[in-house]
Nucleic acid binder design. Structure first.
Length: 640
RNA sequence: GCCUCCGUAGCUCAGGGGUAGAGCGCUUUCUUGGUAAGAAAGAGGUCAUGGGUUCAAAUCCCAUCGGAGGCUCCA
């Protein structure tokens, strides 16, 4: 039985946009990191007509672009989740007028009913054909020399012949497949102006040429295109940055600093409610609270290996007396020092230290985004020290905590990702320890029947991990919670416990964060609920709305009584009509509106209207209090 | 950090080399209304900041800051 519910399983849309140079993993379940996903399996998407339509449109776009910019160099142009793109090296950036012209030209080419003709040619002929196309020449070289294909994937054998596709006046090196003819393309079911033109590095390598990427979105019918564009608009409305302002949750002010959010009272209530819940959950699960400072001696991070392994993400150390101190990028070394302060017996283990620890990491300015990518954030961090025998059970226990968190919040649309070591020298520790840690995680996933993918190069520098990845309103993926198995830091810090045999042994560490970063989690949560938080999380749980001024006193007495019970209740005693107050409360997604007028005063009731427009009618005030207290206590997702 | 685009009232946005515009919101007055827009009047902007071009710049150019999307990165 599956331990986790999945609404859909995400797969990479395509490997075309995955241009990394690592060798292909042998295990077909293992995949690379990708920024796109689709709601169908990768294989069925690649076999679909829609995939061929999008791929063919990319070629049509390239033809139009070459007409507009005769000197342009073409790179690659694959289908993606919602359409396609093509990368060009252009003499100048295309203007909006250029894009309009290109789009119009594409429609014309489509109307020409040109066949997509496939042809096999020798490498030599291909080099001649693409002699003015340096990016194609590079692709040809890599294909025939058996290095990598156009997607940066290592290929098994050198290609003996290459395929080209021709439509109208455009020839491209391409293995297809395509539609038969531009007849199969709908000139009114695509757009190349739904997104700004983007810069994209050739082969995904920051050190190489930056090309101009033009994105297109394409669908089988014009109606589906319209629906998609409408969905995009709707998604922007649930963007946590938009809702954050609308609901007065947080701000990011340049005078304070980029990536350093300020929590306004409403946001702070939301966050604090989540934190108090999690604290209690952790105490109930045998965790102990610890607290550590915001800076630490650089020597600490040298011992842990964070410095210099993640030097790039850390702020320059500050001088304190004769020593260097680092602004805390991680909590683990601190928790380790707390563990180390006492001699531990096997009987004490597992030792579970938890802290809402705020860390600061340097992120490139172009990376920052609302609450989901910031420079200072709070991890709901915990470090668990176990005997090797306890590892598997403890790991599973942590995964069950995730289940509780996700279930409580009704978050079902996430995926679990096991991040294993990739190529490169960023990883610390022996192969043997890595294997042990990886095996433990995979065994836990197996035992729990947890649906997961395995991805290379997604591990932490000290160990492999299991991550929970969710999508935001615009379908971008973000890593939230994480559980990591670590044999390395106990080694580096020479951690010990006394075993049954009265000898010293080395514990294993589990690093885990359920929310990941509280900031990011709240950001995703805002989008998950579209600002319509369940009653227990809503900053204002109920708004009392007097029918007329004369009912203000009664309204305040209702609010006072509910506040007395620990509930968050406001009174809209301002000027203006009741209708307007209802409209405003709805705009703020306040769960309950309590309308009070003469009838209610007389009967001692409140007339309850939900933000869903459902009308509960007049309830005795004590009944409503009991209702809201129950919803609050049980963290109910439903209001009625 | 890089590429493209954007920055005009509290918000959403129009305009555009010659005295600054709309809707919503806000304030005031009238209205005291039983479940999503009652009426009228009014306040509010160095057009992100700093330079430059010009008789004249919110408008054109450059730089800086900030934002959006994408790339790269993400312990």
């Amino acid at each position: 039985m599956a331990c986790f519910r999945f609404a859909v399983e995400h797969h990479p849309a395509t490997r075309h946009n995955c241009q990394q140079k690592r060798p292909s993993p042998p295990n077909p379940k293992i995949r690379r990191k990708t920024t796109h996903g689709v709601i169908m399996s990768a294989q069925s998407y690649q076999d679909s007509e829609l995939y061929r339509i999008r791929h063919s449109l990319a070629h049509v776009m390239a033809e139009a672009v070459l007409e507009r910019f005769p000197g342009a160099k073409i790179a690659i142009g694959p289908p993606i989740e919602d359409g396609f793109y093509y990368d060009f090296d252009l003499p100048q950036a295309p203007t909006d007028d250029d894009l309009k012209w290109i789009e119009k030209r594409m429609k014309k080419i489509i109307g020409g009913n040109h066949a997509f003709e496939q042809q096999e040619i020798s490498a030599e002929d291909a080099r001649q054909l693409f002699k003015d196309q340096p990016y194609k020449l590079e692709l040809i070289d890599d294909l025939v020399n058996g290095r990598v294909d156009e997607n940066g994937e290592q290929i098994a054998e050198p290609a003996e012949t290459l395929t080209i596709y021709t439509q109208n006046k455009f020839v491209d090196l391409c293995r297809g497949p395509h539609v038969e003819s531009t007849k199969n393309l709908n000139a009114n079911a695509f757009s190349i102006r739904h997104r700004p033109v983007a810069g994209a590095y050739w082969r995904g390598d920051e050190k190489r040429e930056q090309l101009t990427r033009i994105y297109g979105t394409a669908w089988p019918t014009p109606d589906e295109l319209k629906d998609y564009l409408h969905q995009l608009e709707e998604a922007r409305k649930r963007d946590h940055r938009v809702l954050g302002e609308q609901l007065d949750l947080f701000i990011i002010d340049p005078l304070v600093g980029k990536g350093l959010p300020l929590w306004k009272p409403n946001g702070a209530i939301l966050r604090d409610t989540l934190e108090r819940w999690l604290r209690q959950l952790q105490i109930d699960s045998g965790y102990q609270p610890v607290i550590s400072p915001h800076i630490g001696n650089l020597e600490l991070y040298k011992t842990s290996g964070h410095y210099p392994y993640y030097k790039e993400s850390q702020y320059t150390p500050v001088d304190v007396d004769e020593e260097k101190y680092l602004i805390k990028p991680m909590n683990c070394p601190h928790h380790i020092m707390i563990y180390k302060n006492d001699l531990r017996s096997y009987r004490d283990l597992p030792v579970r230290f938890a802290e809402f620890g705020t860390v600061y990491r340097y992120e490139k300015s172009g990376q920052l985004s609302g609450l989901v990518r910031v420079r200072g954030f709070t991890q709901d961090d915990a470090h668990i020290f176990v005997t090797p025998d306890q590892l598997l059970d403890e790991f599973k226990g942590v995964v069950k905590l995730f289940q509780t968190v996700f279930d409580t919040l009704g978050m079902t649309d996430f995926r679990a990702r096991v991040g294993i070591r990739g190529e490169g020298d960023k990883y610390q520790g022996s192969d043997d320890l890595w294997q042990k840690a990886t095996d433990a995680i995979l065994a836990a996933c197996q035992d729990l029947n947890l649906n997961h993918t395995v991805e290379e190069g997604e591990a932490a520098f000290y160990g492999p991990k299991l991550d929970f990845v969710l999508r935001d309103a615009l379908k971008r993926e973000w890593q939230l919670g994480t559980v990591q198995v670590d044999y390395n830091l106990p080694e580096r810090f020479e951690l010990e416990y006394v075993g049954e045999d009265n000898a010293r042994h080395r514990p294993v560490m589990i690093h885990r964060a359920l929310f990941g970063s509280v900031e990011r989690f709240v950001g995703i949560l805002i989008e998950h609920f579209a600002g319509k938080f369940p009653a227990w999380l809503a900053p204002v749980q109920a708004m009392v709305i007097p029918v007329a001024d004369g009912h203000n006193e009664y309204a305040h007495s209702i609010a006072a009584e509910l506040r007395e019970a620990g509930l968050r209740v406001g009174v809209d005693d301002g000027k203006g009509r009741m209708n307007k107050k209802i409209r405003e409360a709805r705009g703020l997604h306040i769960p309950y509106m309590l309308i009070v007028g003469d009838k209610d005063i007389e009967a001692g009731t409140v007339s309850v209207r939900l933000r869903t427009d459902e009308d509960l009618g007049a309830l005795p005030r004590a009944d409503f209090k009991a209702l809201l207290l129950e919803k609050d206590r049980t963290r109910a997702l439903e209001l009625a």
